[in-house]
């Protein structure tokens, strides 16, 4: 039953699943699906969670299984922690989609944590470009926003509050 379906087609099916907290992006664009392969006639889908406590994870896992089941494919989900998920895995195209949906994309590439200078991180993140008017004249309201992956900002130019997807 599964032999006549290609891995590309499987990816196409999984693309139907979006992150319930960021409906603009599907799980492939989020970079959460790391690998898809058949082993002993069973389809395995390797997923890397975004945040440890992300409440959407369970839903995403169920949704991936459901869309595949709709096509008659039974899948086993494998959770892989290492290498840890990073916003660096989002493509330019994905970042643009985030911006278009009103969420400022992660600004910089994630820097490697320097083990000799761990506490160098104690600083307010620099100004984030407003996803609505592209102004840099913004301020941070809270490092913690509507979900674990976002911080909350305000644009002094267009007077609009907005979410920012944190570098991770």
């Amino acid at each position: 039953m599964v032999n006549n379906i290609s891995i590309e087609e499987i990816y196409k099916i999984i693309e139907q699943v979006s992150d319930p907290e960021i409906p603009a992006l599907n799980v492939i664009e989020m970079g959460m699906v790391r690998e898809v392969f058949f082993e002993d006639e069973t389809l395995k889908v390797v997923i890397t969670p975004t945040y440890s406590g992300c409440p959407a994870m369970n839903q995403i896992t169920c949704d991936v299984q459901k869309v595949l089941m709709n096509e008659g494919i039974e899948a086993q989900i494998i959770t892989r922690l290492s290498p840890a998920w990073t916003t660096d895995w989002m493509s330019e195209e994905t970042l643009e989609k985030l911006r278009a949906s009103g969420i400022a994309p992660p600004k910089t590439k994630v820097s490697t944590l320097d083990p000799n200078n761990l506490f160098n991180i104690i600083k307010i993140p620099s100004q984030i470009e407003c996803p609505f008017c592209s102004s840099d004249n913004t301020k941070i309201l809270s490092e913690y926003g509507s979900t674990a992956c976002k911080s909350f900002h305000y644009c002094n130019n267009c007077l609009q509050a907005f979410d920012h997807f944190k570098c991770h």
Binding site: P49, Y51, L81, A84, I121, H168
Partner: peptide, 14 residues
Amino acid sequence: AEKSVKESTYHVRH
């Protein structure tokens, strides 16, 4: 550890 250390940086700053 790889996963959690990133979260810790936010916690410690806060």
